[in-house]
Amino acid sequence: MRSLSIIAVSLLAAACSQQPAPVPAAAAAGSPPAAPVATAQASTPVPTPEISGEQAFAMCTACHSRDAGAPQRMGPNLRGVVGRKAGSNPGFDYSPALKASNITWDAAQLDAYLAAPAKHVPGTRMVIAVPDPARRQALIEYLSAP
């Protein structure tokens, strides 16, 4: 049952973190799409719209809380995570890999972990990554705040 919950949450988070592509007016009106035009800007990454830490954390709330005294969920409560040793929040059953990681959460560790949890800590149970650097930064700032 836990595996199905993890898969469901993973799919939900992936769907929530994706932004739909804009539909050109011609396509919306039923006209055939125009041929792509090669420009220097085509290879330039699209800037990420500014996102608040609270907005960034919204996708995490399916598994985590940040409220003082809130119960553990599928993932641990993240209040006070910055400065805390990984796998040490009382009352949560962490993976052996995370407990043995010897990580103390700081901005750099959180950034690496959130970018690719299973790559940073092989064997972790966290399956959701935050690939967007701007979203990770907003999230880390939010988790760093008291």
Rank of each mutant, 00 (worst) to 15 (best):
M1C: 08
L4C: 11
L4F: 13
I7W: 12
A8M: 09
V9A: 15
S10F: 09
L11T: 04
L11I: 09
L12C: 01
L12D: 00
A13S: 11
A14H: 13
A15T: 06
C16E: 04
C16H: 00
S17F: 01
S17M: 11
Q18F: 12
Q18H: 12
P20W: 08
P20N: 10
A21S: 14
P22R: 12
V23F: 06
P24L: 10
P24H: 09
A25N: 04
A25C: 00
A28R: 11
G30N: 03
S31I: 00
S31E: 14
P32A: 05
P32D: 01
A34D: 02
A34N: 00
P36L: 04
V37E: 07
A38D: 02
T39N: 04
T39F: 03
A42G: 07
T48D: 10
P49N: 09
E50F: 07
E50L: 08
E50N: 05
E50S: 11
E50V: 08
S52N: 10
Q55M: 10
Q55Y: 01
Q55L: 08
A58P: 00
M59C: 13
M59Q: 09
M59T: 10
C60N: 03
T61I: 07
A62S: 13
C63Q: 03
H64Y: 02
A68I: 11
A68M: 03
A70E: 02
R73C: 02
M74Q: 14
M74H: 09
M74V: 13
P76A: 15
N77Y: 01
L78E: 02
G80H: 03
V82A: 07
G83M: 07
G83E: 07
G83D: 08
P90H: 08
D93G: 08
D93N: 14
Y94E: 07
A97V: 08
A97Q: 02
L98N: 01
L98P: 00
N102W: 06
W105I: 07
D106K: 07
A108N: 15
A108C: 13
L110D: 02
A115C: 10
P117F: 08
H120F: 15
P122C: 07
R125Q: 14
M126G: 03
V127Y: 11
V127C: 13
V130N: 01
V130P: 01
V130A: 07
D132V: 11
D132N: 15
P133L: 03
A134L: 10
R135S: 05
I140S: 02
E141H: 15
Y142P: 05
L143A: 10
P146T: 07
